[in-house]
Amino acid sequence: MSGLLAVKKVLLRRPALARILVLVAFFLFWEISARWWIDPMFMSPPSRVLASLSSVFETRGVPAALRITFWELTVAFAISVVIGLAIGLAVGLSRFSNRSFMPIILLLYGTPQITILPLFILYFGIGPASKIAFGVSHGIFPIIVTIVAGVQNIKPILMTSARSMGANRWQIFRWVIFPHMIPSFFAGMRLGMTGVLLGVLLAELYVSTAGIGYFTTLFTQNFDPTKLLGLISILAAMAIILNELVRRAEVHFARWRTD
């Protein structure tokens, strides 16, 4: 009895430990239910998924598919950042263009782009190009919107004082706008990464000849939940790592601003 109380006390002091326990309980429940209650055609216990990870990698074409998907994600992200930054600065730095084009950008951002996914396939083919384009269409808007917001939020007094001390346009950009833009730039990159992941994965799942979408369809149609879960966990890990990289960068570069 006192042992139980002590355990409870330790857990109450350490929420992180309790969190791990919750996770363990979840996987145990999954393991037990998948082993004894659910048809193995549909569900596979986590132990078997883990054991079969190597066989997923050995399936012909899967490593190449993962490489292709990763490449699509990187290219789409790079394009989104470059174009998003350019448009964001062009729109954010001038009052007039902000007023004129921001409503159009917000309108486009608000439309459900998933409805035009078939068009992307029609224009860019079923290869990686359509995935990259669809990823860019999801990733670019959050980047533009955050950068515009970041540029607009610079205190006017900073601009005025820089100008009154005789700074030229380039100096204002380099020493006032640029450092203030950094935090919102990285916040935009984080949102952009989420968008790119969503866009590329949606397009992959929709139609794919060599990417991971092909294999998720294959494993689903073969009723092979073990390999399907394995592939999904690998992709989830990829997504988590990419998200975390961008998030770390955001925290790192926003650190100078302590207010």
Partner: peptide
């Protein structure tokens, strides 16, 4: 925990859901 799961693109589980 919830925030962690939320950061995974859940659309990945679509093939699994179609299977179920």
């Amino acid at each position: 925990l919830l925030a962690g799961v939320y950061s995974v693109p859940i659309i990945l589980f679509l093939p699994l859901y179609v299977l179920f």
